[in-house]
Write a protein that binds this DNA or RNA. Sequence first.
DNA 1: TTGGCTGCAAAATATTTGCAGAACA
DNA 2: TGTTCTGCAAATATTTTGCAGCCAA
Lengths: 139, 139
Amino acid sequence: MDRIFKRYRGKGFRFTPQRLAILKYLEGNTSHPAADDIYMAIKREYPTVSFATVYNTVEMLKEVGEVQEITIDPERKHYDPNPNPHHHIICTECNKIVDVFVDYSDVLNLPAGLKREFAVAGNHVDFYGVCRDCRNQPE
Amino acid sequence: MDRIFKRYRGKGFRFTPQRLAILKYLEGNTSHPAADDIYMAIKREYPTVSFATVYNTVEMLKEVGEVQEITIDPERKHYDPNPNPHHHIICTECNKIVDVFVDYSDVLNLPAGLKREFAVAGNHVDFYGVCRDCRNQPE
DNA sequence: TTGGCTGCAAAATATTTGCAGAACA
DNA sequence: TGTTCTGCAAATATTTTGCAGCCAA
């Protein structure tokens, strides 16, 4: 992610080789990796990389809004390097997560009472279903 | 939950005193407790209750569709004893979860491509915001 | 009576943290 | 050069599991 490098250099963030590898791995990645996926991918290039570095880096990216944490999978957090608001659909068989690029914010109106109770900052839609692959290879 | 008791007795499920206490605690409960909340509440009446029993029971209730697992909080699973489809709004300050009883299914249309790729079974909307309490007591 | 459930303890999984040394800026 | 980051290891938190004995049906 050259964009990130250019945008945040000189802002107190350091771009270590490990971080650059993580950025490169995440750039354009639509597989919604969990921390362990990132860890294993970076480990190929930097065998001594640690979870501390992975979590450090995604935390930094989350803070500056370059990565979103996805909570659709109850077993682990997933990370999405697409900073634009969008939604997700998860296959309830294989847990594959796919992006849904539709803006539903206009139609997701809250009841008046809740609008008064909450200063709403955002919304996110989770869709659940079974993907084609899982339907074709039953069991 | 007398309803549950009546519906599932003789179906291979057992209603032990611990389970009845959990059912009673969950009945009409809109606080969206996590496993630990349930554990601590039941512990008052049954000091030797274990997490095995708590997870056992919510698992059984999930399987029969009487309890929903909520994934809006990345730190832990929460349980919702309202089996009807509905949505949630979470306060990003205090993590309080409130129900949203609106049916958005008609307006949550997926792009044609995804409709073909997935056999969609459901959807769930997470709203994020700051509740009145947290806005009134800054910090 | 007996199969499902309980409680305890240990294990598994995911994530966070303390800290000494390394290295980016 | 100073501050941030890394890697290791240990700690924390959540959830799962094995199993012997119990008990609801």
